[in-house]
Design a protein around this nucleic acid. Structure first.
Length: 500
RNA sequence: GGCCCCAUCGUUUAGCGGCCUAGGACGCUGCCCUCUCACGGCAGUAGCGCGGGUUCAAAUCCCGCUGGGGUCACCA
């Protein structure tokens, strides 16, 4: 007999209500965001509600700064919520730090119904009891205070001790059907009565999380696998809340696979790629990151891994989430992002690289009409060749500089032929003769081909390397002739002449 | 240690008993395209952890083992 069978009304028939409830500690982790994404997608897929709540019950570790970062991250990615922090809703407030009065009420009810009881033993005493009884210390609490007599209680109080509150865990197996893993059973006795309220009256996560889920009508709890073993405890609490008339049903649970780093360990906060903003700073676009994150434990189909958010939402179902741990593969993520960049409309792409050009100092705070024109011409040239937007500044900087500011990089200089300077100067002469109006990509190519390839009989590779270096200073650049057209005749000739 | 989860190419994933001499993607290698780098095209590389069952037939179902991970707080 498992607890979640009758008398519960399961959530399966109800409108879907999912939630994302991070605790604001540190910078947002990609695993956390993946969890948010799957919850969001499930809500959107089913036409349900996505609730955003903040679990800031640990004043020691929580910070407002971290809270702001989570908001920033969700907004950047476009993961909007229907109810919760910032947007309000019927279950305000949505920050646990502001909900203490609610928990106090629940605690009173649970006390009155006998589901939670006072526990005076401290950690040392619990260990001592286990040792004295010849039990392993790891067993923890032995439920010995379930039936404290009034005298015993009075004695503790007389000593000036205040009790913690523990949930009376039913002595029976607890079974539930995990949405991604199927049926899971925890045998009776897998864990002891656990503390839900500290002696100082502070309710703990063990209480507060299920209480909020119950009060907010959460139907599906989609969260990380690390919480799998706390699920039976929460089901026991739900059982108590049901019996105390606090909730009408129990949600369904689905535990999403871990996001792993290198080796066989979870992607740690120490790993730079765990940080959401690390990717934004490098120049991931939301479409790219979201697409990749969706692949962490899920797939659209056997032969497609680049897809839009809409396609993702239309196809997503928790039931199809893979239970295996997923590895965060930066190379694959980069490849997905590159593909998503290719799919952007030209205008859109242009506007997205601007902030990166600005923060790299290639462009100033305001973009002049002249610079905008260059961007319009140049952006399409690099949209096909970059992986992250952060590559744009290096690729485009030379277009916004003057001849004198071009610095020839060693990498570019090394591969050049001995007569590189001659090639540059001959080209300058040839281009000098081109009419201003004729200074277009195609014509530039014809002129240079004539003088370098045909007349000097150079291989294209040998001929154009020096020119690329002369005008851009780099070995890698946008296409050469297009770049020359953008620079204009005078600037191009000037750079070629300056090359030595 | 108790309890729980997981197990297909280097990585990720398809496969839910015969379509599998195991498919795709990323990566890697080679070739083609080519003014560099990319893009694109073509080809190649490499995998069902082990052992038992069940079955006419198992990557697919069952059991065991091994390996990995998580969790056992008056953290979340």
């Amino acid at each position: 007999m498992s607890l979640i069978t009758a008398p519960f009304t399961t959530a399966s028939g109800a409108d879907v209500v999912v939630r994302f409830c991070p605790s604001p500690t540190g910078t947002p982790h990609v695993g956390l965001i993946r969890t948010a994404l799957f919850n969001w997608a499930y809500a959107r897929h089913t036409g349900g509600k996505f609730v955003f709540r903040i679990e800031d019950t640990d004043a020691e570790r929580d910070s407002e700064e971290s809270f702001e970062m989570i908001l920033d991250g969700l907004r950047w990615l476009g993961l909007n919520w229907d109810e919760g922090v910032g947007v309000g809703g019927p279950n305000e407030p949505y920050r646990q730090s502001e909900r203490k009065h609610i928990y106090l009420e629940v605690i009173e009810k649970l006390k009155a119904s006998g589901h939670i009881y006072e526990s005076f033993l401290n950690a040392e005493e619990i260990d001592a009891r286990n040792k004295a009884a010849g039990r392993a210390v790891q067993l923890g609490y032995d439920n010995s205070e379930r039936e404290l007599s009034a005298e015993q209680r009075a004695a503790y109080i007389a000593e000036g001790r205040s009790p913690a509150l523990r949930l009376r865990v039913p002595d029976q197996d607890i079974t539930f059907t995990d949405l991604v893993r199927g049926e899971i059973t925890f045998p009776a006795g897998s864990f002891p009565d656990f503390v839900v309220v500290r002696p100082n009256g502070q309710p703990l996560y063990t209480l507060v999380n299920p209480v909020d889920d119950a009060l907010m009508g959460i139907t599906h709890v989609l969260r990380g696998e690390d919480l799998l073993s706390s699920t039976p405890r929460q089901i026991a609490l739900y059982n108590a809340m049901y019996e105390a008339g606090i909730t009408k049903f129990i949600p369904q649970f689905g535990h999403l696979p871990f996001v792993m780093g290198d080796g066989n360990k979870k992607l740690s906060k120490r790993d730079p790629e765990s940080n959401l903003f690390h990717h934004r700073d490098r120049g991931f676009i939301p479409e790219g990151l979201l697409n990749y994150l969706a692949l962490l434990g899920w797939g659209l189909s056997a032969d497609r891994d680049v897809f839009s958010l809409d396609e993702f939402v239309a196809a997503f179902d928790v039931a199809n989430v893979n239970p295996n741990p997923a590895r965060f593969d930066q190379k694959k993520a980069d490849a997905i992002n590159a593909s998503q960049i290719r799919l952007l409309a030209a205008d859109d792409f242009k506007s997205r690289i601007v902030p990166y050009l600005q923060s790299a100092g290639v462009l100033g705070k305001t973009v002049s009409a002249e610079e905008d024109a260059i961007l319009n011409a140049a952006a399409p040239l690099i949209q096909e060749r970059i992986t992250v937007l952060g590559e744009a500044p290096d690729l485009l900087a030379f277009l916004f500089k003057s001849a004198g500011e071009i610095v020839i990089e060693d990498d570019a200089r090394n591969g050049l032929p001995d007569n590189a300077a001659e090639i540059a100067h001959v080209s300058a002469d040839a281009l000098e003769a081109v009419a201003e109006a004729e200074f277009k990509t195609e014509h530039i190519q014809q002129v240079l081909n004539a003088v370098l390839i045909e007349k000097m009989e150079l291989k294209p590779r040998v001929a154009f390397g020096p020119l690329r270096t002369a005008i851009s200073g780099r070995r890698i650049s946008p296409p050469l002739f297009e770049s020359m057209e953008i620079l204009g005749k005078a600037e191009t000739v000037s750079r070629l002449r300056a090359f030595a």
